[in-house]
Amino acid sequence: MNRELGAFLQARRSEVTPEDVGLASGPRRRVRGLRREEVAELAGISVEYLVRLEQGKADQPSASVMEALARALDLTDAERAHLFDLAGRALRRPRPARGVRRELAGLLDRMDDVPALVTNHRLDVLAWNRLSAALFPGLCRRGGNAARYNFLESAALELYAERDEVLRSSVGQLRLASGRHPDDPELTALIGELSVRSERFRSLWAGRVVKERTHGGKRFTHPVVGELDLHYETFELPGGSGQRLNTFHAQPGSASEESLRLLASWSA
């Protein structure tokens, strides 16, 4: 039985409005999100089969059914990938690498004016440069983990100007990882620890949020240099390692660029 798949389908169905998928929303509508009948019609499947899927009683649904449901529920690319992971239709994934190549670690050290760090699917911090250690006080150390840091460490409480979005993103990435790596005991232990120690994590995890943020803006209130408005880019490293290179930079000529320069001098 695939209870996680069923729970994810129900959660997404409750979040999609009729307008999102081109349906009319009448004034007497009482349910939140879409009705099962509406999803079944949009996906071209029977209501009975959708009920079985949501109850976790349908084993190995076909790829075509999953694709139809992804369209019917207006899933993002990350949510679609998670749906296929839960359905057992994902490609066989290589075992994630545990260490960072020496050449990559050396490259980080040469990036003097760009905070850069390497993380894995669990958001463990595997390698970093001096400026990223200064940007994230207390994160960049042996055994550091970005999700644990964001939810549990006091240093992170005031660091992010938009902390709730950072927390949602962290949970979304862990949810995506849990579908891709269901047999990872360290990931399971991390999720269990955060569920016990953080009420906010428990609430977000129950919502089955799936996010994969690869670029965007992030605002900081740094204890040393104050306000920083940075752009981040995340790159999947080649070779099936499951690792990502995360970089941050400021707009050229901006006050944040000067502040980042000051932070580099301070960290030196």
Rank of each mutant, 00 (worst) to 15 (best):
E162T: 12
E186H: 14
Y160R: 07
D184C: 06
G172S: 05
T188A: 15
R175S: 13
F201Q: 03
P185F: 12
L174G: 02
A177V: 09
L167D: 05
R163E: 07
R163P: 05
E162I: 09
S178V: 05
G179R: 05
A189N: 03
L167F: 00
L187D: 00
G192K: 00
H181I: 07
A189D: 11
F201Y: 13
S178G: 10
R168A: 13
G172A: 08
L190H: 01
E162G: 12
R180V: 07
L174W: 04
V166D: 01
V196N: 14
E193L: 15
E165R: 13
F201N: 08
R175F: 01
R168M: 08
P182T: 07
L187I: 07
A177F: 06
R202M: 06
V196E: 15
A189E: 15
I191S: 01
S169G: 15
R202W: 04
S198R: 02
S195V: 00
E165Y: 12
V196T: 14
A189T: 08
L176W: 10
G172L: 04
A189Y: 03
L187S: 02
D183L: 12
A161M: 12
G192P: 03
G172E: 00
Q173W: 03
A177H: 06
A161S: 11
E165G: 02
G172D: 06
G179I: 01
P185K: 12
E186D: 14
R163Y: 11
R180D: 04
V171Q: 02
L159R: 12
S195M: 04
Y160M: 09
S170W: 04
I191R: 06
R197C: 02
D164S: 14
A161V: 15
E199V: 12
R180Q: 15
D164A: 13
L194K: 03
H181L: 15
E193N: 10
Y160P: 07
V166S: 09
R200S: 13
R197K: 11
S170I: 00
S170G: 01
L167Y: 03
L190V: 08
F201D: 02
D183P: 06
R180F: 00
A189W: 02
S195L: 01
D183S: 13
P182E: 07
Y160V: 11
D183N: 13
E165A: 15
L167R: 04
R200H: 12
G192Q: 04
L174H: 05
Y160S: 06
R180C: 07
T188V: 14
L176E: 07
F201C: 05
P182Y: 05
H181E: 12
L167N: 02
S195T: 13
P185Q: 11
D164Y: 07
L190G: 00
T188I: 09
D184Q: 04
R163F: 10
S178N: 01
E199N: 06
L167T: 04
V196A: 15
F201V: 02
L194S: 09
L176Q: 10
F201I: 03
R175A: 13
G179P: 06
T188E: 15
L187A: 00
F201R: 04
S178T: 09
S198T: 08
L159E: 05
E186C: 09
Q173S: 13
L174I: 05
E199F: 04
R200M: 07
R180T: 03
E186Y: 10
D183W: 12
S195Q: 08
E186I: 02
D183V: 05
